[in-house]
Nucleic acid binder design. Structure first.
Lengths: 190, 190
DNA sequence: CAATCAATACAGACAGGTCTGTCTGTTTCG
DNA sequence: CGAAACAGACAGACCTGTCTGTATTGATTG
């Protein structure tokens, strides 16, 4: 092995994917480095070559995940059939809630586990939530026009609330409650 | 020492208060038993007499905290001046967000950290959320009458969303966004 | 009143495990 | 040869939970 180098390494990618999966399933603190290297099938030294510390790995995983998350919602909102963008967004949200292994927002979860507002991971999560809000605001604007400035923050709260509620209840129903309220708020009616 | 016994022990109470504070500030996993006993000023054996394992302590702390939380909101909602119960509730929510050391919902945080839906702590949190919802529903009913059945779940989502948003942003603004939306939904107008 | 007993809490060593991060040496492949 | 990854031992810290032995205190009893 040992062909590519730096940010495009195969081993690096395998580490990211494995850590992402394990961190999401069990939490960033509950999963040790040893478990990541065992399941990724790589050597410990290799991991520490690519990520100087576990905190660096956590941050890299969050960045890696954000790409996928934003892509998922943009794609799902884009390929809406006859649905409006807002309806398509909530369909994607519901789809996410229904997906196997759903355990809420990985960013929120990580921020809570890190329990330190100055941790690089937490700061990244803060940025992510702003970017996610911008995504929502863009979608709301397409439907609600200039009243979006007022309703977008409310819809964002509904979405956040639905995520934490769904994961705790183990049921996706909260997505529908949030959708109905959001449609009404945005003037789409139920 | 050694005067009282069982559930009324002074040492037991000191353990609960200390663990509650530490668990809330740093998380249930980040805080070790050694730190609890050091800051509570009790012996390790004493802790294990009252709580057979750390998981038992976590559960006991959650139960202890629920008493205080429900009391806080019931009291705050009860002693509203000219405010309606719903307005008083959101005033209390805002007060909580502004309180020093605010770090979101301890139950939600614990459930995320435990990352196991079958853990006794997680199951208790699930029950707590139901009880908290009933509290909200009761308050909404006093204002919105029979439409409460429809709007109470939405308001609950707004509240949950506001909590996680406020703690991540480090700002209490989300409480006001949620309040305005909730008042409108409940027919109180802005 | 004085001696004793039971309950409670104390201090802290200890075992056995896990954690992160470092390091040595080997293998694979271009 | 040289770059990358391999395997895995190791250090040092921390974790939970157990255990031994001591001190304090209220109640009991002679």
């Amino acid at each position: 092995m040992g062909r590519t180098r730096g940010a495009t390494s195969e081993a690096r990618q395998r580490i990211l994917e494995t850590a992402d999966r394990l961190f999401y399933e069990h939490g960033v603190r509950a999963v040790g480095i040893d478990r990541v290297i065992a399941e990724a099938g790589i050597a410990k030294a290799t991991l520490y070559v690519h990520f100087p510390s576990k905190d660096d790995l956590i941050l890299a995983v969050l960045q890696y995940r954000e790409k996928n998350v934003l892509e998922f919602f943009r794609a799902a909102t884009g390929r809406h059939g006859r649905k409006t963008p807002l309806r398509a967004f909530f369909a994607a949200l519901r789809e996410w809630f229904d997906s196997p292994g759903f355990r809420g927002c990985a960013f929120q979860n990580a921020a809570i586990e890190l329990a330190d507002p100055k941790h690089p991971g937490t700061e990244f999560v803060r940025g992510h939530k702003q970017r996610f809000f911008e995504l929502i605001r863009g979608i709301v604007e397409e439907t609600a026009g200039r009243s979006a400035t007022k309703v977008a923050p409310v819809i964002a709260l509904l979405v956040e609330g639905a995520v934490v509620t769904a994961v705790l209840q183990g049921r996706p129903d909260a997505a529908d409650v949030a959708r109905e309220a959001a449609l009404k708020l945005s003037g789409e009616g139920a």
